[in-house]
Amino acid sequence: MALGNKYKSAPGAGTAAALILVLVFGSPWYRDWAADNTNPATAGGWFLRLLGWPSWYIDSGDSLREIVVQDLRAILVVVLTALFLFLLPGSQLARARGTISQFFAGWGAYIFSCGFAALLTTLFLANPTLLRAFESAGSGATYGIFVGWLIGLVTLGGRRGTRS
């Protein structure tokens, strides 16, 4: 049996899940595979391509600024997920661990973190506009809505503080 909920903190488990999602599905190898092997006109293909949204890459053909902005978005998704999981009170106020409020707090934290990560990284682009910032935040929130339920499931049942 794996470690029980007694040892799992909701923010720690959610942050670890976010890191794994970003490292695996945001990798250039996964994104290349998804681009070559999926059809964006189908729901499955669209979802598999969406998984690669918080991308990171290092390509010698891109400018350093573009590489940093892309990687910064992926880093901010993980960091902001940890922050929002810690700050969102839904599971702290729940009477018992494992309630639906914990699930929604984890899911919501991921939606917020993805939207804010996209919004903040847009500010580092050359000639950022308000429209581009809104579009970026929308794409981040879309990713968070469709993928964030995984974070919600992982945080379900975890403890919030240092006491169990």
Results as ranks from 00 to 15, higher is better:
Arg65Pro: 06
Gly115Val: 01
Gly152Lys: 13
Leu130Gln: 13
Gly14Trp: 01
Thr155Lys: 15
Arg163Phe: 11
Ile20Gly: 09
Gly14Arg: 00
Ser55Arg: 15
Trp53Phe: 15
Arg132Ser: 14
Ala2Glu: 11
Leu87Trp: 00
Tyr143Phe: 03
Val24Gln: 09
Val79Gly: 05
Arg163Val: 12
Gln102Trp: 02
Ile67Lys: 13
Gly144Asn: 03
Ala2Val: 09
Arg95Pro: 14
Trp149Pro: 13
Ala105Phe: 03
Gly108Cys: 06
Val24His: 09
Val79Ser: 05
Val147Gly: 13
Ala105Met: 03
Leu93Phe: 13
Asp62Gly: 14
Thr121Gly: 10
Arg95Ser: 12
Leu87Ala: 07
Pro54Met: 02
Ala41Thr: 14
Val22Phe: 01
Glu135Gly: 14
Leu156Arg: 15
Leu50Tyr: 00
Ile58Val: 13
Ser60His: 13
Thr142Ile: 14
Ser55Asp: 10
Ser101Phe: 11
Phe116Glu: 02
Asn5Leu: 10
Leu83Gly: 08
Thr162Lys: 15
Phe103Leu: 07
Ser113Lys: 00
Gly140Ile: 00
Gly52Gln: 06
Thr122Ile: 01
Thr99Pro: 03
Thr155Gln: 15
Ala2Ser: 11
Leu23Ile: 02
Phe134His: 11
Trp29Cys: 06
Tyr7Lys: 04
Leu51Arg: 00
Asn39Asp: 15
Thr81Cys: 08
Ala126Glu: 13
Arg73Asp: 00
Leu3Gly: 14
Phe25Glu: 05
Arg159Ala: 07
Ser55Lys: 15
Ser139Leu: 05
Trp33Asn: 09
Ala74Thr: 03
Val79Ile: 07
Asp32Lys: 04
Gly138Phe: 05
Leu64Phe: 15
Leu120Trp: 06
Arg163Glu: 11
Ser55Val: 07
Asn39Glu: 14
Ser9Ala: 09
Leu123Met: 09
Leu153Phe: 11
Leu51Cys: 11
Gly106Asn: 07
Asn5Gln: 12
Gly90Ser: 04
Glu135Ala: 11
Asn37Tyr: 06
Ala74Met: 10
Gly157Trp: 04
Asn127Trp: 04
Gly26Cys: 05
Ala74Ile: 08
Lys6Phe: 10
Gly52Val: 02
Val77Lys: 01
Leu120Val: 03
Ser164Tyr: 10
Leu153Tyr: 09
Gly140Thr: 01
Leu150Glu: 00
Gly90Ile: 02
Ala109Asn: 05
Ala133Arg: 01
Phe86Asp: 03
Val68Arg: 10
Ile20Tyr: 08
Gly144Ser: 09
Ile75Cys: 09
Trp33Met: 05
Leu48Arg: 08
Glu66Tyr: 14
Ala74Leu: 09
Leu76Ile: 00
Ala117Leu: 01
Ala137Thr: 10
Pro40Arg: 04
Ala17His: 01
Leu87Asn: 05
Ala10Pro: 08
Leu150Asn: 05
Phe124Asp: 09
Gly61Trp: 11
Lys8Glu: 02
Gly26Tyr: 11
Trp53Ala: 03
Gln92Ala: 11
